[in-house]
């Protein structure tokens, strides 16, 4: 592998083989016990905690040279976190990258599940800040472990009870706790609860890595995942009651973007690949015309993300991504960074 790398001093995908082996063992155990948090010897990574050190280690352990990697941050391919992690693996693993969900084999994500349905054979890697769903209710680690072991999950419902008592409804809108295969209660990482229904019955493998907390957990394909709720206050996925102003989609998760200081705002899909794909197929939203009016100019971050993929993945990726790339930039120019 090493001859492909420009930074030849690194092992394939940065981590040494013994470390990757250790992480793979943790991943296998996590898949064997869905929802259970497996401790692992998390390594110091060349990025600060909170930037996805857990996800990066899981991705590094999963990558093979034939993989095509996609990295998203809040659904976007072009935000700082996504760009820097993608570049990291381009340099250290030399794998192909893509922005198209359908073409990726490994997708590392922060806080979103892509809108495009995942397929068998794909791996979705989540970056997890705090893996313990009971942490803010019970600060003692010894106690929360015991609660998991003995299936004492009443406390989780106390949190939901407090929500309803205070707000009249379950106000938890992200990191919404789920129960996996009727056994472990799991924190799905801070994805919006809109994405919760996609966790269950998903043909892809879903892996969760928490670097600082040194935990890995997983959902094998087709797992049964239930969002916790009350009989008289059932779980409801929620999103902004609007359509995407660029592609007109009414069923995707939206970001609100402030466009001026006079109350102007627009709603856009948080999944940039999904939005761009729809626009490439001719869908138009309320503000699509004015948004795409300025001539597309090359974006530095987009350019970095896309360019090296020419090396290995000429075919589908190159065909699918360039047209939306320009549009996405023009539209998001108002500031998708601000929403991240």
């Amino acid at each position: 592998m090493t001859e492909q790398l420009d930074a030849g001093a690194y092992n394939f995908a940065y981590l040494d083989e013994q470390t990757k082996r250790m992480i793979r063992r943790a991943i296998l155990k996590a898949i064997a016990v869905p929802g259970y948090q497996v401790p692992f010897a998390s390594r110091e990574m060349p990025m600060p905690y909170g930037w996805g050190t857990g996800g990066v280690q899981v991705t590094a352990a999963c990558l093979v040279p034939e993989d095509r990697l996609k990295v998203i941050d809040q659904g976007a391919d072009d935000t700082t976190n996504a760009v820097s992690i993608r570049r990291f693996f381009q340099r250290t693993a030399g794998v192909a990258t893509t922005e198209a969900t359908a073409e990726a084999t490994v997708i590392q994500t922060r806080h979103r599940i892509p809108e495009t349905p995942l397929k068998a054979g794909q791996i979705l890697v989540y970056q997890v800040p705090i893996p313990e769903p009971l942490r803010f209710l019970e600060p003692r680690e010894t106690e929360t472990r015991k609660m998991h072991a003995l299936e004492e999950y009443g406390l989780m419902h106390v949190k939901l009870y407090e929500d309803i008592a205070r707000h009249g409804q379950i106000a938890t809108s992200y990191a919404y706790p789920v129960r996996v295969e009727g056994r472990y209660v799991m924190d799905p990482s801070p994805i919006p609860k809109f994405d919760n229904p996609k966790l269950g019955n998903n043909p892809a493998i879903q892996l969760f890595g928490a670097g600082r907390e040194q935990r890995i957990y997983a959902l094998p394909p087709w797992s049964r995942v239930e969002s916790l709720d009350f009989d008289d206050h059932p779980f409801r996925p929620s999103k902004a009651p609007h359509r995407c102003d660029l592609c007109g989609a009414g069923h995707s998760y939206l970001d609100e973007v402030i466009t001026d200081d006079a109350g102007g705002r627009m709603f856009v899909c948080s999944d940039t690949d999904f939005c761009a794909g729809r626009r490439a197929r001719g869908h138009r939203g309320r503000l699509a015309a004015e948004a795409s009016a300025p001539p597309p100019h090359p974006s530095p971050t987009r350019g970095e993300g896309g360019a090296p993929s020419d090396g290995l993945a000429q075919g589908g990726a190159a065909l699918a991504s360039p047209p939306p790339r320009g549009e996405g930039l023009g539209a998001g120019g108002a500031g998708p960074e601000g929403t991240a």
């Binding site: 004492e152 009443g154 406390l155 419902h157 106390v158 009870y161 407090e162 309803i164 008592a165 205070r166 709720d229 009350f230 009989d231 008289d232 206050h233």
Partner: peptide
Amino acid sequence: LRMGVSAGGNVGERLMAVGARHYGEIR
């Protein structure tokens, strides 16, 4: 007691711990 949880939540905790899942009844 759980000092960060409302009085109603404190009383309801044991009910939820033994499987009560109906908000109206717990309250």
